[in-house]
Computed example of a mutant assay.
Amino acid sequence: MAAFNFNIELHMCRPILIYVCNPMSIKKLIAALPVLLLFAIQIAIPNTALAQTEMWDTYLSKIGDQPATVLLDMNLILAAPDKRYPYVVITGPRAHKCDQKGMPAAIEIDALESILDATGNFLTGLTPKVLVGTVMYNCQRNNYYYVRDTTGIRNAIMRMYNRSFKDYKYSIIIRPDPQWLSYRTFLYPNDETQNWMDNNRIITGMLQEGDSLKKPRTISFAACFNTDTARNAFTTFVTGKGYSINKTPSIKMSAAPLCLLFSKVGPIKVDSINVVTAELRNEVKKHNGIYNGWSAPVK
Rank of each mutant, 00 (worst) to 15 (best):
S171K: 11
F186Q: 12
R175A: 15
F165H: 06
I153K: 14
Y188D: 07
E192V: 13
R184K: 14
Q194D: 06
D211H: 07
N190A: 08
I153A: 10
R163H: 12
I153H: 11
L207Y: 04
Y161Q: 04
I172V: 13
I174W: 07
D211E: 05
N195F: 01
M158Q: 15
K214T: 13
D198N: 09
L213S: 02
S164G: 00
Y170V: 02
Y183Q: 02
L181T: 15
R163A: 11
L213F: 10
E192K: 14
T204A: 12
N200H: 11
M206K: 10
N155T: 15
Q208C: 11
N155A: 15
Y168T: 01
N190K: 14
I203N: 01
E192T: 14
P189E: 09
W180V: 09
K166T: 10
I203K: 06
Y161E: 12
Y170D: 01
S171R: 08
S164A: 13
M160V: 03
D167F: 02
I157G: 04
R159V: 11
G152V: 08
I173Y: 06
N162G: 10
M160P: 09
Q179W: 07
T204H: 10
P189M: 08
I174L: 13
E192N: 10
Y168F: 09
N155P: 12
Y161S: 05
Q179R: 14
R184Y: 05
I203P: 06
G152M: 04
Y188C: 02
M160S: 02
G205H: 07
K166L: 09
N199W: 00
F165E: 00
K169S: 14
Q194C: 06
A156R: 07
R163T: 15
K214L: 14
R163W: 10
F165C: 05
I153E: 11
Y168E: 01
I174F: 10
D198K: 06
W196T: 03
D198C: 02
K214R: 12
S182R: 12
N155H: 11
R163E: 15
K166V: 09
P176F: 08
S212E: 08
E209P: 01
N190T: 07
I174P: 01
K169Q: 09
P176A: 13
R175L: 15
Y168G: 00
I173C: 01
N162T: 13
F165T: 00
D191W: 02
M197Y: 01
G205E: 06
M197S: 00
Q208H: 09
E209V: 02
Y170T: 05
I203R: 06
S212L: 09
D211I: 03
M197E: 00
G205C: 02
T204L: 09
A156W: 11
D198M: 14
Y161K: 00
